[in-house]
Amino acid sequence: MAATLETGTKIRVEGVSKVFGKTPERAFALVQAGMGKAELLETTGHVLGLHDIDLTIGSGETFVIMGLSGSGKSTLIRHFNRLIEPTAGRILVDGEDILRLSEPALRSFRRRKIAMVFQRFALLPHRTVLENVMFGLLIDGVPRARAEARAREQIALVGLDGFEARHPAQLSGGMQQRVGLARALATDAEILLMDEAFSALDPLIRHDMQMQLKQIQSRLHKTIVFITHDLDEALLLGDHIAILRDGELRQVGTGAEILAAPADDYVARFVRDVNRARTIRCGDLAEPGIAAGAEIGADAALEQAFGALARGPVTVRGADGAPRGVLTAGRVLAALAG
């Protein structure tokens, strides 16, 4: 969304592996000696959830981790706030190894620095919308009046004014997830973890939520780690995308990079069915030069340029108004052909 705002590394994941089972350390030693995932399961009953993951997530970017179910993406996102502890590796947030945090330090890290949105919303059914949004603040000991004022701001931000006194079961799925988002935003954490946050929603509602997230992000510039199994969603939201399969990282790059050069067959099969006209942005295909005709923003999807392209080449301009190059029909057709 806003790659220009990157100022540095926010999260570093170094060599993280996770083995599930009774004696994970012993099983992990076998993995290091070269045993594969299937053999490990067969001989020891241990599951290799993640294997040697390295990632760098920039400050202020939206980083999408995508994979099918069982790929380890939900396991991975739970490492960022230590809901799951890795078997090996380091996780640095702002240069600090969060695996070294004591229990109280970890709690205050979770209260102030990192917030999470869940696939099935995970709201408290016996509390009102307002109380749900206040949850993180009250846990942190923020005085009730201040917590309430802050919660009301967030409820307004996600467009739920007037619903403060309702209970979650009275709201639609999309509205419940807005509550989940407001709850996560309320603590003013710099990092937002979103675990398949929109996967449980209807397609139309999902698209609304994606747009709302983009709009909120363009104002707040959080570091967002977003999990999804939907490549269209990944391409729409992600400044960078990491593709995970069977607990291993297959490719990391921008959406355009992955579409242009899938790292292996697995990624290529994923990419084949993508609606390129909607996911590739005009800026991605701009060539040096300036055209005489129409103009379009670098962030616009290719399909938005079709009308103008029918009449000739189009000039692409960045968000700052500076020309980024020229877009031609030939270039667009080549990209759509894959």
Partner: peptide, 19 residues
């Protein structure tokens, strides 16, 4: 998942229990 959410927001074991 609701218990996990409360942990993710930094609830202590006692806060998880009572809230």
């Amino acid at each position: 998942e609701i218990v996990e959410a409360s942990r993710a927001f930094g609830a202590s074991p006692r806060q998880q229990l009572w809230s």
